[in-house]
Nucleic acid binder design. Structure first.
Length: 105
DNA sequence: GGCCTGACTTTAG
DNA sequence: GCTAAAGCCAGGC
């Protein structure tokens, strides 16, 4: 580990790049960071959230668009944050088809 | 160096 | 369609 940047460091970087009104999945961030199977470590570091205001962890959701957890008040707050940002919801879950963040060229 | 944790994902029933 | 269990990775102690 610690080759150049900490794995989580890259995750935070990508998370911070997520545009407003869009969301990314843990798996997606893990894949962008180098390991699509490291979604576990991603979630753990998000919980620790050493960069709370710097990293919009509320824009990170599960692979199916459902919200899992939020260290700053709970998933309910997280859901409201996304709604206020203009994220599309469907059946109480994020509509990844419309609001999932995609790497911009 | 080894064990435990965790905001996940996937497959099976 | 939903619930349960197993598997996976990186970080922290």
């Amino acid at each position: 580990m610690q080759k150049n940047k900490l794995f989580t460091e890259r995750v935070y970087e990508f998370t911070a790049k997520i545009p407003k009104g869009s969301v990314a999945t843990y798996k997606q961030l893990a894949a962008l960071s180098g390991n699509s199977r490291a979604f576990r470590a991603v979630g753990m570091c998000m919980k620790k959230n050493p960069k709370a205001p710097a990293v919009p962890c509320h824009r990170v959701v599960a692979s199916d668009g459902s919200l899992c957890g939020y260290s700053m008040g709970g998933v309910e707050v997280k859901r409201q944050m996304l709604l206020l940002e203009g994220v599309y919801f469907k059946n109480g879950k994020v509509d990844l088809a419309r609001s999932q963040w995609k790497e911009q060229p």
